[in-house]
Design a protein around this nucleic acid. Structure first.
Lengths: 128, 128
DNA sequence: CTTGACCTTCCCATGACTGGAACCCTTATG
DNA sequence: CATAAGGGTTCCAGTCATGGGAAGGTCAAG
């Protein structure tokens, strides 16, 4: 399989796949002409990576998850620890964004949004 | 006012304040010795920027908001448009993160998290 | 006179890509 | 047989909003 095909299969851009090789997440073989050859296991790894990234795991988390995935004698506790850690980061982000949204939507609600210069949004940004 | 004082006042790191000067958000004067001198208006601008950044506005949004803030003949509609645009970006992010959280917490919930290798989280990442 | 706390500029690094240039390989067509 | 299209390759630079750290100038206190 060439890079284009595996890109189409996994939904990852070819550029990203090359990058993943660069940082050592995958190690596809090469043909005589220099082209990368992706074995089925490479494609599986990339699909795994695509899903993990879609769930917001960092590249380093992905590296660790991939290692656990390939380790037949892993402990599911190790996987769970990574996932749980990530889960609380996500929840923190949601909390922060929700606070932003609430503040901002109040300001927007109070703003007439017309031709006049008077603007509660700017007043809100100006000072407490 | 020197940079340290205005940093303490606004809560912005000195590095960030220098960066804001670099990209033209503020233009503090200089003393004979080369030190930046922050007038009260500079400090106000920085406080404004700190609040806008805390609400997640991009630097470019901040630049535009700052221009509107200083324009006595602005239309509040212009401010509102920027804020509304940003608001929907925030809401998109919240939606995406919430979806991640839901998927991930399901996987975590189903994972025993013990010494055994069997792991629903990895299975979930492996394929649909 | 020296110490320590400021301040300055400059360059490099982050995360996870993305864009683009310049070039090679393969196949189909005029 | 030349060429054009559509793969592939490497390498370099840019993104966003800073942060780290080096190398050095300035200033007030002891």
């Amino acid at each position: 399989m060439n890079i284009g095909e595996v890109a189409a299969q996994t939904g990852l851009p070819a550029k990203t796949i090359r990058y993943y090789e660069d940082i050592g997440l995958i190690t596809p073989k090469r043909e005589a002409n220099g082209y990368r050859v992706f074995a089925r296991t490479d494609a599986h790894k990339l699909a795994f990576l695509a899903r993990a990234r879609a769930l917001g795991f960092s590249i380093e988390d992905c590296r660790n998850l991939l290692a656990l995935w390939e380790d037949r004698s892993r402990a599911s506790a190790d996987v769970r620890a990574i996932a749980n850690e990530h889960l609380s980061e996500i929840e923190e982000k949601i909390t922060g964004l929700t606070a932003m949204r609430d503040t901002l939507s109040e300001l927007v609600r109070d703003c007439a949004g017309d031709n006049r210069p008077d603007c509660p949004i700017l007043k809100g940004l100006e000072g407490a």
